[in-house]
């Protein structure tokens, strides 16, 4: 084959490949796009037939109503408190736990590692009732602290597993060098291990934050007081009942719920891929 023909063939292949990828992206993101567009449509247009793709008239009235005439901001604050507190708690416990699993030798270490992964495999509905009983026994029913505790039990196994792979893949030499250079074990941990584990820490934190931010089932069961409800359960119980669905407001609220996560992702995406790749790189 001549060179120009070969080049043309390669270009056509590249175009087809890109078109394929964009088609998949479009299909996957269509619900999101529909959510955003519906949020900006007037109520009359939402269920009209044939449906309009782009709003004929763009409006912010649903956002205004969500923010001004519902406890959305209170839910938002609750969600933020729960997500940030869970993330902090999980990160502290997981970082030290992962370091211990990766660096120290003690009886039962491998068993602990496997059990942690096993707990991650348990479906959340299985532990719903036992956890509820524990939370009630602790006097934490209907409190944000109770939710933080429950979310920590979910996020911790995965966080530990992810960070363990990360710490284990880090060379021991730099840590030892720091100790010879005058750092204590803890000093070497903070000076050398933590900075090197940063991509893993960021991806783990992001994972934990999103898990807590989006969690619906436990928040629905554990919290009945509107003052302590978080966004997913709060918004749905407010705007979605068996008789009436406020589609536009629900979509506007969904856009507002998605926004923080999207912003987080945009900034931290690079670290996220690096973090999830940890452990698999070393062969």
């Amino acid at each position: 084959m001549s060179r120009p023909l070969r080049r043309a063939g390669r270009a056509a292949g590249l175009i087809a490949y890109n078109l394929g990828i964009w088609a998949v992206i479009l299909v996957l993101s269509f619900p999101l796009i529909w959510m955003v567009l519906t949020a900006f449509k007037p109520r009359s247009e939402t269920l009209s037939f044939p449906p309009s793709f782009l709003p004929r008239r763009w409006t912010l009235e649903h956002f205004e109503r969500v923010l001004n005439s519902t406890p959305f901001l209170s839910f938002f604050a609750n969600s933020l408190i729960v997500a940030v507190a869970t993330t902090c708690l999980v990160m502290i416990v997981a970082l030290f736990g992962a370091y211990s699993l990766a660096r120290f030798t003690y009886p039962g270490r491998r068993l602990v590692g496997r059990l942690i992964l096993f707990t991650y495999l348990l479906p959340s509905t299985v532990v719903l009732v036992p956890l509820y009983l524990i939370v009630v026994a602790l006097g934490l029913a209907n409190t944000l602290a109770g939710l933080v505790l429950v979310y920590t039990t979910f996020a911790l196994p995965f966080a530990l597993w992810l960070l363990h792979a990360f710490v284990a893949s880090m060379p021991l030499d730099t840590e030892e060098a720091a100790r010879v250079d005058g750092a204590s074990r803890m000093g070497a941990f903070f000076d050398v291990v933590v900075p090197q584990a940063l991509p893993g820490l960021i991806s783990t934190a992001l994972f934990t934050f999103i898990l807590s931010w989006n969690e619906y089932l436990f928040s629905l069961v554990f919290i009945t007081d509107t003052r302590t409800k978080t966004l997913p359960s709060g918004v749905t119980s407010l705007l979605l009942d068996s008789m009436n669905v406020e589609w536009n407001m629900l979509m506007a609220a969904s856009v507002l719920i998605t926004l923080p996560v999207l912003i987080f992702f945009a900034f931290l995406q690079k670290h996220l891929t690096k973090g999830f790749g940890a452990g698999s790189v070393k062969g």
């Binding site: 030499d173 060098a177 250079d181």
Partner: peptide
């Protein structure tokens, strides 16, 4: 003071 086979420089 120790020089390691891998040099063990602090990458960050």
């Amino acid at each position: 003071a120790m020089v390691f086979q891998s040099y063990a420089l602090y990458p960050h």
